[in-house]
């Protein structure tokens, strides 16, 4: 027998035998823990309330604001244009993103900002989704508590503060007017705004043959 044939036969048998030990399930795309850790420590995963407010006012179509609190709390108050994905219902029993949210999360070119009352729920949602390989996720630092402090009830800066802070304060006053009617202490109840999700392109069934 030709030497080349012999080698080819050995290679093909070895590869075939290797197929015996390959698990049927696909190689998972979960983010490895070390990389997750690096990402968690990256401060750029936070956005400020000002950035979120600006995005809402500008009507930025690339940002999806996700409320990770329960549905009751969402009904009581939410940011305009936000989507309610309660943290408890984010993951289904199989450990993947629940089917209901698949159309919202992981859309290419879409930035997602999670918020909750504080940082905790939003952070947890961020970790879960990042671990499942979804990119472009952010957490609104300070949550709604911070939102009320900075956007709805902004306090004026010190007289000696730098000009940027006054500019920021001006913006916040404007935003406060936009969101709450101007320094309103009682926050108006806002009804949930229906959001039309950008449907992810369904995987096409390939047709044809030889």
């Amino acid at each position: 027998m030709n030497k080349t044939y012999f080698f080819l036969i050995v290679i093909v048998v070895l590869l075939g035998a290797g197929a015996l030990f390959i698990p049927e399930e696909r190689f998972t795309e979960e983010l490895p823990p070390d990389q997750l850790f690096l990402k968690m420590n990256d401060p750029s995963r936070f956005v400020t309330t000002d950035q979120v407010a600006r995005a809402i006012i500008d009507g930025d179509p690339n940002i999806l604001i996700v409320d990770t609190r329960s549905a009751d709390q969402y009904e009581a108050f939410n940011l305009p244009g936000s989507v309610n994905i309660p943290l408890e219902e984010l993951i289904d029993s199989t450990g993947n993103i629940d089917e209901r949210w698949e159309d919202y999360l992981g859309i290419e070119g879409m930035y997602i900002a999670f918020y909750s009352n504080g940082d905790v729920c939003a952070d947890q949602a961020w970790v879960l989704c990042t671990r499942l390989g979804i990119n472009d996720l952010f957490v609104m630092r300070g949550g709604l508590n911070r939102w009320v402090e900075t956007i709805l009830k902004p306090s004026p800066p010190e007289q000696t503060a730098p000009g940027e802070e006054f500019a920021l304060y001006d913006f916040r006053k404007g935003a406060s007017m936009y969101f709450g009617g101007g320094g309103a202490i009682e926050v108006e109840e806002q009804s949930a705004v229906p959001v039309t999700p950008v449907r992810k392109k369904k995987k096409q069934v390939i047709s044809g043959g030889c």
């Binding site: 093909v12 590869l15 075939g16 390959i22 696909r26 190689f27 047709s207 044809g208």
Partner: peptide
């Protein structure tokens, strides 16, 4: 060759055999 290749590709996540026509 195609068969062995697809099995490995599927495992590496380069192709999803459940989506193959």
């Amino acid at each position: 060759v195609a068969m062995v290749g697809l099995v490995y590709f599927n495992y590496m996540g380069w192709i999803d055999l459940s989506q193959i026509f």
